[in-house]
């Protein structure tokens, strides 16, 4: 069934049955083994699985910016230097992941198909709160694995197309391992370096700032996280590896090109040459 067809080459009856516009529910009905969080786990796999670390996000006038460092760790080993942890979820939202890398990436992939599937079947886009709640139920499905050490903690941010005029359309949602979904004001961070990143943003965040200022704010916060948390990667100037930065505004979601991020990071590092504490 993985290819989605019956042996005769016909569309399976489950596909022709009217009903749900959720891709996750379709998977659960036709190929449950493909759902993350539905597998029996042997104990003790948590130490072997690479973990992704710090994600930061902050709102600005007209949208929201999210950034993530590039490091994945496996105990004391750096498993990857250039992992991508922030992904576009659909045209107006993005999701960043901290926790067990393999499961988290699978979940993000499923989540973006889920949003696109709904959009195509229904001919309408889910509300931002609706999208946030869908992610919630996906994390809830992973609770069993989370209890064995394979937790996934995402951060979700998007541009609210239904926001009343005058209010900020950029919104951030955080989650706990049980699937609890909490809307955050101004800024938030998840992952092992989040404590340091959040402290940095608390001191630097200003209402009414621009997208450029906010990118700078996040670059500073990630620098502080990498400064004090061994599992968070700092900017790798020698290899040219910089944080992944997504900007979501009225025009949709876009990833900032590496050159732009490199320029921002360069000014941050330059500042730290004079004042290491920022």
């Amino acid at each position: 069934m993985a290819a989605g067809l019956e042996r005769s080459g016909r569309l399976p009856q489950a596909y022709l049955t009217p009903g749900s516009s959720s891709f996750t529910e379709l998977l659960a009905a036709t190929a449950p083994e493909m759902l993350p969080g539905r597998r029996a786990l042997p104990p003790g796999v948590a130490d072997l699985a690479p973990h992704g670390t710090t994600i930061v996000a902050a709102t600005f006038d007209g949208g929201v910016v999210m950034a993530g460092d590039r490091r994945a760790t496996m105990g004391n080993i750096i498993a990857s230097r250039d992992m991508q942890k922030v992904y576009p979820a659909d045209a107006y939202s993005c999701v960043g992941i901290a926790g067990t890398a393999g499961i988290a990436i699978e979940m993000v992939r499923l989540y973006s198909v889920e949003l696109e599937h709904y959009e195509k079947i229904e001919g309408a886009v889910l509300s931002l709160a609706g999208k946030a709640n869908r992610l919630s139920s996906m994390i809830r499905g992973n609770l069993g694995a989370a209890m064995q050490g394979l937790a996934v903690v995402p951060l979700f941010a998007g541009f609210d197309l239904d926001a009343p005029v005058g209010s900020s359309a950029g919104r951030i949602f955080s989650y706990d391992v049980t699937g609890g979904c909490y809307e955050e004001k101004q800024f938030h961070s998840v992952g092992s370096g989040s404590l340091f990143a959040k402290s940095a943003m608390k001191k630097r965040y200003r209402d009414g700032s621009t997208a450029e200022d906010t990118v700078r704010l996040l670059a500073e916060a990630l620098y502080d996280a990498a400064d004090d948390d061994s599992a968070t990667g700092g900017p790798d100037m020698t290899r040219g590896i910089y944080p992944v930065v997504m900007v979501v505004d009225a025009d949709g979601v876009r990833r900032l090109p590496d050159e732009e991020v490199a320029a921002v990071v360069a000014t941050v590092v330059e500042g730290r040459m004079v004042n290491p504490g920022g």
Binding site: G4, L11, Y15, L27, V113, H117
Partner: peptide, 18 residues
Amino acid sequence: ENLRVAGVRLADMRGYSY
């Protein structure tokens, strides 16, 4: 409409599996 929905399901399932 029934065929269209089934087509979207098949396409998304394929794209997700491969």
